[in-house]
Design a protein around this nucleic acid. Structure first.
Length: 284
DNA sequence: AGGACGACCAGGACGC
DNA sequence: TGCGTCCTGGTCGTCC
């Protein structure tokens, strides 16, 4: 599932491969994925325009055009965006095809069609529906220890659902939430307001480490995700807990067994031995 | 206020 | 073989 490292990988790949190229024609095969404007508006806005930049906020990818329009793509679960090899057949679940004036094609594929496309004038990007309720990107604009401690103190919910909440900080999804907490040695069901200063420090450091390593590995491919060149990522081989229920903990010297629990209707994986639950602090 | 849960969507795994 | 059921999960909307 495309989370921050996956979308960042796609962004970097597309910057390299499609920036500067001009769209001759856009074909929208599933118009219902467009959440603002109609297909004809998209055609008018981007046909004849060049892709000038590819941006990202959280899990949202932003294609910027020389016509001063932006197309915001949210992959949700199964979205992919990559240049199609010359002469290659269109994939079964192609939803939008961008045809370049040099003959190349960029294809937007989404098996489950949960993803969205949104056209918006670039100057009004921040008002896009896709980006309302999406907080600062946790990789580009991470909170300070003080800010994070403050946010945690105000919440009683478990720390894992807190990490999934995109409104304060954006980009972390189910897989990386599990991995970050494993790295930080914090139990996912620890209440936010039980976490102290040392936990906050570990949480921030682990977040940074996991995201950096996952981006270096070009993201995690479990089933659908593909990079911006159409290939799989590599971080699935470096996962410590996600998807490893009943398997041994990989931490040196730890004899724990990975457990799976459900939080907010989502799978959570952790090692009950090396991930400690903080004791709730006494409040005065 | 904020938590729980269903809807959206389609395919893969699994049981009978 | 073939069908039904469950599971996957990001985000939004609804309800309590």
């Amino acid at each position: 599932m495309p989370e921050l490292p996956e979308v960042e990988t796609v962004r970097r790949d597309l910057c390299r491969h499609v920036c500067g190229r001009t769209i001759a024609r856009v074909r929208m095969l599933r118009e219902d994925m467009l959440i603002a404007g109609g297909p004809s508006e998209v055609e008018q806005a981007i046909e004849g325009a060049a892709i000038t930049d590819v941006g990202r906020r959280g899990k949202a990818l932003i294609l910027r055009f020389s016509s001063s329009y932006s197309l915001i793509v949210h992959f949700r679960m199964t979205g992919k965006l990559y240049p199609l090899a010359t002469g290659a057949k269109l994939p079964a679940h192609a939803r939008t095809v961008f045809e370049f004036d040099d003959g190349g094609r960029l294809v937007h594929e989404d098996v489950r069609r949960l993803g969205t496309l949104e056209l918006i004038p670039s100057e009004g990007e921040n008002c896009a529906l896709t980006l309302t309720n999406i907080g600062p990107d946790i990789f580009e604009e991470p909170p300070s220890a003080e800010e994070l401690a403050d946010a945690l103190e105000r919440r009683k919910c478990a720390v894992k659902p807190f990490l999934l909440d995109q409104t304060r900080m954006s980009g972390i999804g189910n897989i990386y939430a599990c991995e970050i907490l494993a790295r930080a040695c914090i139990r996912p069901d620890t209440p936010c307001d039980a976490l102290g200063a040392s936990h906050v420090t570990r949480l921030l450091a682990s977040t940074r480490e996991v995201l950096v390593e996952a981006i270096q590995a070009r993201g995690t491919t479990i089933s659908d995700y593909r990079t911006g060149t159409g290939g799989p990522g590599g971080f699935q081989h470096q996962l410590r807990v996600y998807g490893r229920a009943d398997e041994p903990c990989l931490v040196d010297g730890c004899d724990g067994t990975i457990r799976r629990i459900v939080q907010g209707q989502r799978s959570t994986y952790f090692c009950p031995v090396c991930q400690k639950r903080a004791r709730r602090r006494r409040r005065r």
